[in-house]
């Protein structure tokens, strides 16, 4: 496979993690402009673990996810009472705070006569795990998509579980969900923690993919994109944000003639879709229709007693 294609596919895979993390919060009705903070925390944590402490990649990624998740929980608790615009502003403020903290963060040690580690605004170079361990770009691509597959399967399970129904219930009407006996605070913090961990894994993979991170990578642009992927792709299924990433990085990337106008086209696409399809291309209605069609044509899907009405009831079938 062409190196460039591997690079683009790797980017799509890695950015999908942060898109899914923003999507999970969107399910609970919260708009976060701050997922890039957890992506950054995961990137720095995992990078430090392999480059400075000599940890294996698997452990470093778990560490990045854990730190990202823990940070998200710490942000989630004080912002529990905030909604809508106020929550969005709070998450954006937190993300900017994290970015500026990384501009101040210096932690370098000498390895083989070379200073390695985060050096404030100059960034964190030499996260060389894949080169030191002779991992080629294609192998790393497979790793990214293996982890993404696990996460997607987790989302499939979540969507079918009571927890997924509760998340959507909170997203639809928090007060009503509370009246049904759902612990809003508990579930919102849980969603924040999971989304932070997802962004953390993505950050860890990104740091090892590029071998270099710097605070500027994690500015508001990344947060806006991660949110926009879900809004473009759709909120009816976890495949929605992936579709959003595919449209942005895949389709627009391939049209090189658009070159520097890509961002304008992307912004216009978001604005257009928010008007004509406010819940994205793969919204709940489309997903329901696809599911119904699948059940009609697939012999495996015809299972007696399968309750297919929950999601439709929850969303009220609205677009």
């Amino acid at each position: 496979m062409d190196d460039y294609l591997i690079g683009v596919l790797s980017n799509i895979g890695v950015i999908s993690f942060i898109a899914l993390s923003a999507y999970l919060l969107l399910l609970t009705g919260e708009i976060s402009f701050g997922q890039q903070a957890f992506f950054a925390i995961g990137a720095y944590a995992a990078g430090i673990a392999t480059a400075l402490w000599g940890w294996p990649l698997a452990l470093a990624l778990v560490w990045g996810a854990a730190i990202g998740g823990a940070a998200a929980v710490l942000v989630g608790i004080p912002t529990l009472r905030l909604h809508g615009l106020y929550f969005a502003i709070a998450t954006l403020a937190f993300a900017e705070m994290v970015r500026i903290l990384f501009e101040l963060f210096r932690y370098q040690i000498t390895i083989d006569g070379e200073l390695v580690g985060p050096d404030g605004a100059d960034g964190f170079r030499n996260i060389r795990y894949i080169f030191d361990n002779n991992i080629d770009a294609f192998q790393f691509l497979l790793l990214i998509y293996a982890l993404l597959a696990v996460v997607l399967l987790g989302f499939v399970l979540l969507e079918r579980s009571r927890l997924g129904v509760i998340f959507r219930m909170i997203g639809e009407d928090e007060t009503l969900a509370g009246l049904q006996g759902v612990s809003i605070a508990h579930h919102k913090v849980l969603a924040a923690g999971i989304s932070g961990a997802l962004a953390g894994i993505g950050g860890g993979l990104y740091a090892h993919l590029t071998t270099y991170v710097e605070p500027r990578i994690f500015d508001v642009m990344l947060g806006v994109h991660s949110l926009a992927y879900g809004l473009i792709g759709g909120l009816g299924t976890a495949l929605g944000p992936l579709l959003g990433v595919l449209i942005d990085i895949g389709v627009l990337e391939s049209i090189r003639a658009l070159s520097g106008y890509r961002m304008i086209i992307f912004g216009g696409l978001v604005a257009l879709l928010l008007i004509v399809r406010p819940r994205g291309l793969l919204d709940e209605n489309v997903v329901h229709k696809i599911g119904r069609f699948w059940r009609r044509i697939s012999p495996w899907a015809r299972r007696p007693g399968l309750n297919t009405g929950n999601r439709n009831n929850l969303t009220g079938g609205r677009p």
Binding site: I12, M221, E253, M263
Partner: peptide
Amino acid sequence: GADMPSMPAAHNVRP
């Protein structure tokens, strides 16, 4: 190749 740090994965140049 080249990447624009302020727009990760969005602006990059074919190597």
